Amino acid sequence: MSFLDDEFLAAWAEAGHQPLGNVSGTVVMKTAGGPDGKVAASLIFEVGVLTSASAGTTRGADLTLEAPWQLAADVVRGDADPARYYMAGDLKVSGDMALWLELLPAWCAAGSLGTPG
């Protein structure tokens, strides 16, 4: 299993997740430089809970996060601080900034986005 591959996404979608505040919306994560080149995943949050994780982008996503593959893996797993890398410009964010400002502190407090091992 590799970060954002089909096996990872299936396990992520099926894992029990602690709520991240009251965040609701679709987040697209785009990465480059990993084993599979450019990869995108769509994450759906409902009232703070990650309810779906699937390969590809979702049209009309509320929020898009872009980072190099290894950095994305590190921040999603809780091995790197997303706020720090966002402020440094290494984690790019576009779309609904209110959603980002709601997701970021909940994500930092949780330590990860509840990814599978």
Rank of each mutant, 00 (worst) to 15 (best):
A88Q: 11
M29C: 08
V93L: 03
P19I: 04
G78W: 00
L104C: 09
E66A: 09
Y86E: 15
V49D: 12
Q18V: 05
P105W: 15
R59K: 15
A53L: 05
A73F: 07
E14F: 02
E66Q: 11
P105K: 15
G25K: 13
V47F: 07
G34L: 00
L4K: 03
Q18N: 03
Q70C: 00
L113M: 04
R59C: 04
C108K: 13
L43H: 10
A10G: 07
E7M: 02
P19S: 02
S42V: 00
K30T: 10
M87Y: 15
P68K: 11
D79V: 00
M97P: 02
A73N: 15
A88H: 01
S2G: 01
T57D: 15
H17G: 05
S24D: 14
A109G: 01
P116A: 14
G56I: 02
A88P: 00
G78L: 00
T58C: 06
G33C: 07
V39A: 08
E7T: 02
L91Y: 12
A32D: 13
A98T: 13
L101C: 10
L71N: 10
D5T: 06
G111Q: 06
G16M: 04
A72L: 08
T31Y: 07
L65T: 11
V49M: 12
V76L: 10
A106Q: 12
G60C: 07
L103P: 10
D74C: 03
L20S: 05
S42D: 06
R77A: 09
V39D: 05
G78Y: 03
